[in-house]
């Protein structure tokens, strides 16, 4: 029910605060989505769409930050495997809240 699908804004069709709509592309398929909750979304940006309306603009920097952190975790893991007893210290660095 709370399914949300990321799509890329292709073109604004209507800028009305209640009836605002844009064409949004999902894996090559375009759909008209309601945009009243993301009036500042720009063409080329990704939004999350739920039940036909865009509910958020995806923060590309935040997405990249999480993926970067996971890459760091990868590198930590490439150190020689810790023994079971000492493994507690081998976790990745502090993550930001």
């Amino acid at each position: 029910m709370c399914l949300g699908v990321p799509g890329q804004v292709v073109e604004w069709l209507d800028r009305d605060p209640v009836f605002g709509r844009a064409s949004v592309e999902f894996a090559g398929v375009r759909r008209v989505c309601h945009m009243a909750c993301v009036p500042d979304a720009e063409v080329g940006e990704y939004v999350i769409v739920h039940a036909g309306i865009a509910i958020s603009r995806i923060d590309a920097e935040q997405a990249e930050r999480l993926l970067d952190e996971l890459r760091t975790l990868d590198m930590d893991d490439e150190l020689p495997p810790p023994t079971a007893a000492a493994s507690d210290d081998a976790t990745a660095g502090e993550r930001s809240p």
């Binding site: 029910m1 709370c2 209640v18 309601h34 739920h50 039940a51 309306i53 509910i55």
Partner: peptide, 12 residues
């Protein structure tokens, strides 16, 4: 029906 996620769509 639906949680807070869906309420904006029905309000709209």
């Amino acid at each position: 029906v639906g949680f807070e996620t869906t309420a904006p769509a029905t309000a709209l």
